[in-house]
């Protein structure tokens, strides 16, 4: 344990970077995923095809490959991203494909009568989506989005492979220095839990809050 305690600043540094990576990628993934979900349910065929292509491409290739592409691949076409930025984009776009699918399912679960009532009053398609469909769809989608947020948090560890000094990267550094492998990775796991357990609790509370209106 002394090996771990000595290197605590490294762990905490890594934890902070992990948190930044997770929060940044989550915000971006939710925004992009919602837009892609709207493409997927669009009345226009071209938009639906574009949305489907996006989802299939990003969902069906490994995260590690995508991250290598952003960080090590793009420089070959003249775009050099810092490791942190590349990893964040990789995580965000990868996760956005799953967000889009969850959100699409949520949108499709809204009863058609809701859309008819909104359109019958003269609301436009976009207003109907924004004011009537999406608020209900998001509330329904909170549990699967919570799962995705947890998966995303854990997936930040992949960024260690592209040299982002997040928690997993720092754990490897400590391990190489001290050979206290057992303690190092035990503590690392505990630190990931310290992020993900509160996240699960938060999701449960959010779910409760957002679905309040459904029951009397």
């Amino acid at each position: 344990m002394p090996a771990v305690v000595q290197n605590l600043p490294l762990f905490l540094d890594g934890l902070r970077t992990t948190l930044q990576l997770a929060v940044g990628a989550l915000v971006l993934a939710l925004a992009v995923g919602t837009l892609v979900a709207l493409l997927r349910v669009s009345p226009l065929g071209v938009l639906r095809v574009a949305g489907t292509a996006y989802v299939e491409f990003l969902r069906n290739t490994p995260l590690l490959v995508q991250m290598f592409f952003w960080v090590f691949g793009l420089p070959f076409v003249g775009v050099v991203l810092p490791e942190f930025g590349g990893a964040l984009l990789g995580l965000a776009f990868y996760t956005s494909a799953f967000v889009a699918e969850a959100m699409r399912a949520g949108i499709l679960s809204i009863q058609h009568g809701q859309i008819e009532a909104a359109r019958a009053m003269g609301l436009s398609y976009v207003q109907t989506m924004r004011l009537v469909v999406l608020p209900q769809a998001i509330a329904i989608t909170v549990p699967p989005l919570g799962n995705l947020a947890i998966a995303l948090t854990k997936n930040t560890s992949v960024a260690s492979a592209v040299l982002v000094p997040e928690l997993m990267y720092q754990a490897e550094v400590v391990n190489a220095r001290t050979f206290a492998t057992y303690e190092t990775f035990f503590v690392t796991a505990a630190l990931y839990l310290a992020l993900t357990i509160p996240l699960s609790r938060l999701v449960a509370r959010l779910e409760h809050r957002l679905t309040r209106f459904r029951s009397a």
Partner: peptide, 15 residues
């Protein structure tokens, strides 16, 4: 449509 009100069998209020 804004000049035509409609009432549905299943109400279709926004929950």
């Amino acid at each position: 449509r804004s000049k035509i009100g409609m009432v549905f069998q299943h109400f279709n209020l926004f929950p």
